[in-house]
Amino acid sequence: MSQQYPQQPGQPQQQPAWGSPQQPPKKRSVGKTVGLGCLGIIGLFVVIAIIAAVASSGGSKTSSSGTSNTATAHSSSGKAKADGKAKADSSNADKAASTVVFKVWGTAPAGALGPADITYGSDSDNRQGHWKNGFTSTLPFKKDAMYYAVNAQLQGSGDIHCSVTVDGKTKSGHASGGYNICSAQLSSGFSGWE
């Protein structure tokens, strides 16, 4: 059996000599292509990490000069009252921002395992709640938490609602009948708690 090679115009066809080895085809450099692709993916992750770090560090700037303009327009006794009220409002706002509120309410008759089974907390702190004609609890707010959630499972029957409130935003859920679960969760995102 003879091998045939493509013939170029104007040249005679060449036959290999018996016993002479054929040259193997040239290999492609696939490793270089794969290596460059991996560097591009790693670079993309680095850029995303930098953007996330910049976005999370620049979002919490507040100013307390908004109340001073209204306080100077009042008399000295009115100024003291306005300053006191501004401090109380600021204190309430700080307190609300520094705590997370978890609630479960409705009807949850005791089943084989008791009334509703309640779990609440964050991605790094999970706690067990106890039903006493409803449930309310607070935890200190932690800026580095990824989410806060509450889950309440019925034990055979009932109709319950649940909610979690973080930084003035509230998410709520509902469950009815059987062993259904009421869930509410707020997650930390680029634009605050969602």
Results as ranks from 00 to 15, higher is better:
71 A>N: 08
139 L>D: 04
172 S>H: 09
28 R>C: 01
56 S>Y: 09
54 V>L: 15
177 G>N: 14
183 S>E: 12
54 V>M: 11
55 A>R: 08
121 G>E: 02
92 N>V: 01
54 V>R: 10
135 F>H: 03
172 S>C: 07
115 P>G: 10
82 A>L: 07
59 G>K: 13
6 P>Q: 10
58 G>N: 13
49 A>N: 14
142 K>V: 12
98 S>E: 08
45 F>E: 06
33 T>F: 06
44 L>W: 12
34 V>L: 15
134 G>N: 05
48 I>N: 10
116 A>V: 05
59 G>V: 11
167 D>H: 13
86 A>V: 01
126 N>Q: 14
38 C>N: 11
124 S>N: 12
19 G>T: 10
157 S>H: 04
106 G>N: 08
74 H>M: 13
97 A>D: 14
35 G>S: 15
110 A>V: 03
39 L>A: 15
119 T>Y: 04
159 D>K: 02
179 Y>K: 13
59 G>Q: 13
148 Y>T: 05
158 G>P: 02
66 G>A: 08
32 K>L: 07
188 S>W: 00
131 W>F: 09
103 K>S: 05
120 Y>F: 13
102 F>V: 02
125 D>T: 14
116 A>Q: 03
16 P>S: 06
12 P>K: 07
135 F>Y: 10
5 Y>S: 05
181 I>S: 08
23 Q>W: 04
47 V>D: 07
156 G>C: 07
34 V>R: 14
86 A>T: 00
142 K>T: 09
158 G>S: 05
3 Q>I: 10
90 S>P: 02
102 F>C: 05
104 V>L: 06
183 S>I: 03
125 D>R: 06
153 Q>V: 02
70 T>E: 04
157 S>Y: 03
36 L>Q: 15
164 V>W: 02
120 Y>E: 01
162 C>T: 06
142 K>W: 03
51 I>H: 00
112 A>N: 13
187 S>Q: 10
75 S>A: 15
69 N>M: 00
91 S>K: 12
50 I>F: 13
59 G>P: 04
16 P>H: 08
139 L>G: 01
140 P>V: 05
184 A>Q: 06
181 I>L: 14
51 I>G: 11
187 S>F: 02
141 F>N: 04
108 A>D: 02
85 K>Y: 08
7 Q>F: 09
191 S>V: 02
112 A>S: 15
97 A>Q: 07
44 L>M: 14
176 S>A: 12
89 D>T: 12
79 K>A: 07
43 G>A: 15
45 F>M: 12
131 W>M: 09
183 S>Y: 08
70 T>F: 11
41 I>D: 08
140 P>C: 04
15 Q>H: 09
176 S>V: 09
127 R>D: 07
193 W>S: 03
119 T>I: 09
137 S>V: 04
45 F>Y: 15
32 K>Y: 06
185 Q>N: 12
43 G>D: 11
170 T>I: 15
178 G>W: 06
6 P>A: 11
21 P>D: 07
188 S>R: 15
98 S>M: 08
150 V>N: 02
81 K>M: 10
84 G>R: 05
175 A>I: 01
22 Q>T: 00
154 L>K: 03
78 G>Q: 15
134 G>H: 01
143 K>F: 03
84 G>K: 13
172 S>W: 01
93 A>H: 00
80 A>Q: 14
163 S>G: 07
12 P>C: 00
138 T>Q: 14
